[in-house]
Amino acid sequence: MPSEFTVRVNGALVSVSAGATVAVAMVIAGQPCRNSVMGEPRGPLCGMGICFECRAVVNGIPHSRTCQLLCEPDMEVKTDE
């Protein structure tokens, strides 16, 4: 894997270093990971797989915990609605 590569977050390209989690890519992109039940934007809270606030759609799979998932080149990430 290259040391720097891009992933797509809600359509926009974000550059990350190898080893970065998907949650990191979303925070860098300034995009919420999910919209809550009442529609509030949410981002990571615990960073350790406990709170489930960082759930997003990763390569089409909803409710993926992005803080526990490493970025891969050309990953497609979207806010979980």
Partner: peptide, 12 residues
């Protein structure tokens, strides 16, 4: 968003 745990931000 961007309100995180102390350990949470560290982990990120």
């Amino acid at each position: 968003p961007n309100v995180m745990g102390a350990g949470g931000l560290q982990a990120l």
